[in-house]
Design a protein around this nucleic acid. Structure first.
Lengths: 207, 207
DNA sequence: CGATATTAGGACCGTATGGTCCTATGCGCA
DNA sequence: TGCGCATAGGACCATACGGTCCTAATATCG
């Protein structure tokens, strides 16, 4: 097994544990058990500290999210606003994969560490910014279909906040339909920004 | 100093620490220092465990929120939809008191403990439910001004999710204007549910 | 006064934490 | 053959954790 295979194995185990119990409550020993390593030194052979492990897990979670979620926002053959709806569906789908239990990996870490750990805060901020910028690009692309006064920065933040809040509530209530309902409402909110006459069939789909 | 004074003192210190660093990262010794107690036994004279302390802190945070935030939803002399807007303003104001750093005490605990600690999860769920039910009552009261197809359960959840998500993002970005922008958008979303012709002056205020 | 409860303070315990160090075994590659 | 690296595994460390126990001083109140 190569160096990077082992690292991947450790990162996967850590990602699962962290998304289940949080970063603070996940011990290095837990990760070692999860990744079936022989001992502490084996772990520290691959990562110089638990903190660095956390950073890399965050990066991997974002890359996974970028591939399986954000990528939809860039599909060139689909109408931009339709893509936005598909993206929201994808967030719901990703959440339902874990039975609605595990939350957004970013929201979790954000709530846990934003105030307590500046290193994580900065990295999570960067994640949200990259996410927001993808939505802003899409809104720019959809500009002809949108009202003139649509503020892409604000709208992109609203979409992210609504989704993160929805994921949080879904975890607390252990009920995926919470997320589904909020996702549907969010689509209606976005449709509200569509210029009269544009994308009428889209609008009708949501009613 | 009476028994309950001391308890209050401890609860206040614990509330501050927990909202700053989370429950897991707040040790009993930290609370003892914060409340200027003489030692561990002094603390355990008032609370049987750290867990119980956490539960009581959560209760107090909710009561405080109920007094300073939710109470607005029940003001009898103000138009219900106006009250909803005032409530949203109040959430922004409460957040800005801590310089936008400390998040919603419920959202924090929810993200940290919902998956890991069933006792907290249930209590946080109850908090959200009480919050949602207040909004539902208000929406019921505002029924004549709203479209017939407004789903009060769904809309109340959306409002809470948007606010919780907004508070989370605000903490991560350390920028209160994030919350302000989302709050404004949320008001527009609510206004979207208002029946044509009703509450026109309200609608115009938001533009 | 004496009795009772609160306050104070420290010693202590078992367990877990992140992290270091050391030794020994395999295994591929020059 | 021998060098170097991945694997394995354990001992160990300082610190911190939640929690218990014990004793002594101080108030309160009959």
């Amino acid at each position: 097994m190569t160096m990077s295979d082992r690292r991947t194995q450790i990162l996967d185990a850590a990602a699962t544990l962290i998304s289940e119990r949080g970063f603070t409550s996940t011990s290095v020993d837990d990760v070692i058990k999860g990744a079936k390593l022989s001992g502490k030194s084996h772990f520290y052979h691959y990562f110089k500290s638990k903190e660095e492990l956390g950073y890399e897990v965050l990066n991997r979670q974002f890359e996974r999210f970028a591939e399986r979620g954000l990528a939809i926002l860039r599909e060139p053959m689909i109408d931009p606003l339709e893509r936005l709806n598909l993206f929201i569906d994808a967030v719901v789908a990703l959440q339902s994969e874990s039975g609605g239990r595990r939350g957004s990996p970013f929201g979790n870490l954000a709530a846990e560490l934003a105030d307590a750990h500046e290193g994580f805060r900065v990295r999570i901020e960067a994640v949200f910014e990259r996410w927001a910028s993808q939505i802003r690009s899409l809104l720019w692309e959809a500009r002809p279909q949108l009202h003139d006064d649509v503020d892409a920065v604000r709208l992109s933040r609203f979409i992210i906040a609504a989704l993160e809040g929805a994921v949080l509530m879904t975890r607390v209530k252990r009920d995926l339909s919470v997320l589904e309902g909020i996702a549907a409402d969010l689509k209606r909110f976005i449709a509200m920004h569509v210029r009269d006459g544009a994308a009428i069939q889209l609008h009708r789909n949501l009613e």
